[in-house]
Amino acid sequence: METLNRAEETLSGETLSAEPVIEIQDLHKSFGDLHVLRGVDLKVDKGENVVVLGRSGTGKSVLIKIIAGLLRQDRGKCHVLGQEASSLNDKQLRDLRMKIGFSFQNSALYDSMTVRENLEFPLVRNIANLSRSEVNEQIEYVLDAVGLLQTINQVPSELSGGQRKRIGIARTLILKPEIMLYDEPTAGLDPITCLEINELINEVKEKYHTSSIIITHDLTCARATGDRIAMLLDGQFLRQGTFEEVFETQEPQVKSFYDYNFIQ
């Protein structure tokens, strides 16, 4: 396995030290007889976008669900902002989750609520004593950031796939997270919308100074958004590095992944 870490990252004109916000060591997770993660090691530095690539069913989504505390690992360490998610009590886990934004593959918008209510829901429940005007101001700010202020009174069923993804991202941004976890952000979208989502991911990083893990098997998205790529194969990271470093190889599994995306 080849691991290439960056010492420093320049972001929005300011230099950030290589302070890890996520540190994963020897992570294992099984579902019954299926051993999905088999000793995963990963470090995400502050201000860094790490793309996790891999075929379907290799445990990419399981990995970020463990980071968000939605699943518990069987073995290994998963430190998020210096805390081990699996050992936290309810209150500590809630406090940690306020610093993590999770963009779901299918957006997971609350379909009985309007866009405004979707955004208001986590805000008023997590930040006490906000006035109505402050709530409205914050909702309008994040909707403007994702370019969908005009959809404020619509319900999710009236939105397109790309719009739903953007609103899903806006809903996570309203709590000003330090870490963003994107699960297949471009899955099921047309190429133009994919490019818009890639741009949005980069804008979020710049505006909100987030560190991110982006789960995808779309290499265009990986190249556009990732500072570092980690290739997950058979429950382990086979290669980590920049896009070029990862794909400058004759490793058949990595090569076939590249060829499939760019030749077909």
Partner: peptide, 8 residues
């Protein structure tokens, strides 16, 4: 799950 990760 989305509610849970939104700290709700």
């Amino acid at each position: 799950d989305a509610m849970e990760v939104s700290a709700v």
